[in-house]
Design a protein around this nucleic acid. Sequence first.
DNA 1: TTTGGTTTTTGATGAATGTCAAAAATGCCG
DNA 2: CGGCATTTTTGACATTCATCAAAAACCAAA
Lengths: 187, 187
Amino acid sequence: MEQLLNHIKDYSPLSDEAQYALHDCFEQVVLSKNEYLLTEGKICRHLFFLQQGALRGFYTLDGKEITHWFGFEKDFVTSFHSFITQEPAVENIQLLEGSILWAISKDTLTGLFNQYHEIERLVRIAYEKYYIRLEERFVNAQFKTATERYENLLLQTPHIIERVSLGHIASYLGISQETLSRIRSRF
Amino acid sequence: MEQLLNHIKDYSPLSDEAQYALHDCFEQVVLSKNEYLLTEGKICRHLFFLQQGALRGFYTLDGKEITHWFGFEKDFVTSFHSFITQEPAVENIQLLEGSILWAISKDTLTGLFNQYHEIERLVRIAYEKYYIRLEERFVNAQFKTATERYENLLLQTPHIIERVSLGHIASYLGISQETLSRIRSRF
DNA sequence: TTTGGTTTTTGATGAATGTCAAAAATGCCG
DNA sequence: CGGCATTTTTGACATTCATCAAAAACCAAA
C-alpha cells in the first residue's frame, strides 16, 4: 500500500486527508500465475494498482490470442473500455506471475472524485501520462517495421524480455513468433 | 462558441458560472487552407476546439510526411505530447480546409482547473473518450490488415473519404498510396 | 476550353513477414 | 537424473505490401 501512495505522489501531491481516504478505499488482491483478473464478457468494475508481479491483456481473434498490453510493477491496470463504459469486456487479463494488487471499485472512485477535487486531478494527470504512452505505441505499431518495434522494446523496456515468453512478446509487437525469433537471431 | 459550449455539455454538465468562465477564456482563431496551426520544434501552448473545418497532424520521417491523425468539426485538437509536457512538438498541424477554431492556453486552462473542479472533471471525462478512441486505432494499426483498416474507416468515419485526399488517407492508415488505390479499386 | 500542376491509377518487381511443419532447446516435476 | 510438455528455432513456401516508374484522370486558373 505504501508503494501505491508513494507512486501516486509522483503524479500529483495529495493532502493527508485525501491519502487516508485512498488508503481506506483500496483493497488488496493476491493472485497466482495463470489466474484471471478479468475474462471476456464480464464487466470490469475495478481499477487495479499492480504492486508486484506481471500480467497481460489479451483478446481472441480467429482462434488466436492477441496480447495487446502488459502490466508490471507500479502500473495501473484495468480493462479501460469496460471500466469506463461499464460494458462487457472484450479482453481477458491474466496473471503472468504471482502478483499483489490493490483494487478500487468504479463507484468508490467516483465517490472520491466527488469528495476530493485533488483525487480527480490526480487521475486527470495519470490519464495524460497513459495517453502519451499509448500514442507512442500507436505510432510504433502503425509506422515502424517489426525490427524497429523490437529494437524499441529493447531500448524502452528491456526487462520485459526476461519476464515474458517470446510468443507473448511477438503478439504484443504484432508479429508472428517465428519472425520475432528470426529478428532476434540476427541481434 | 455555442457549438463549443453545447458540445462540452455532452461530456459533463456545467454550472452557468463555469460556462461563463469558459466563454471568457476561449479565443477565436480563423485560418485558411494549408496554413499551419503548429510546426515541428515549436512548443504547443494551446488547446483548440475545431468548430468548422478540417486539419491533419503529421510528422516527417525519411523525408516523407506521415499523417497520423485528422481533426474535424467538434474535435479538440492539439499536439498532445507537446501541450502536456511543454516540450517542442515533433509534429505539424496543418489546415486541410479553411477553419474556425477556439483556442485556450495551457496556463489559462490550468487556472480554470484550480477554480472549477467541474472543469477539471470535464477534461478528465474527455480524456477517457479520447483514450478509448486511440485504443481502438491502436488495435487496428497493430493487428489488422490494410484492407481491414480501410473497411473500418469506411464504416466508422465515411465522411473522411470525401474531404481528404487519397494520399493523406493512405498515410493515416499506414499504407502506401498505391496500395490504397488498389484496395479501393476492388471495392 | 486549353494548359499545367496535382492526384490517382496501373504495371512490374522485390522485400518483409506470415503460415505450416518439423526439429531443437528448455524447463519442470516426479 | 530422466521424461514430458512447452517454448523456441529453422526451413520452405505463399502472401501482402512497398517501391519505382509511367500513364491516366482530375482540377483549377487563365
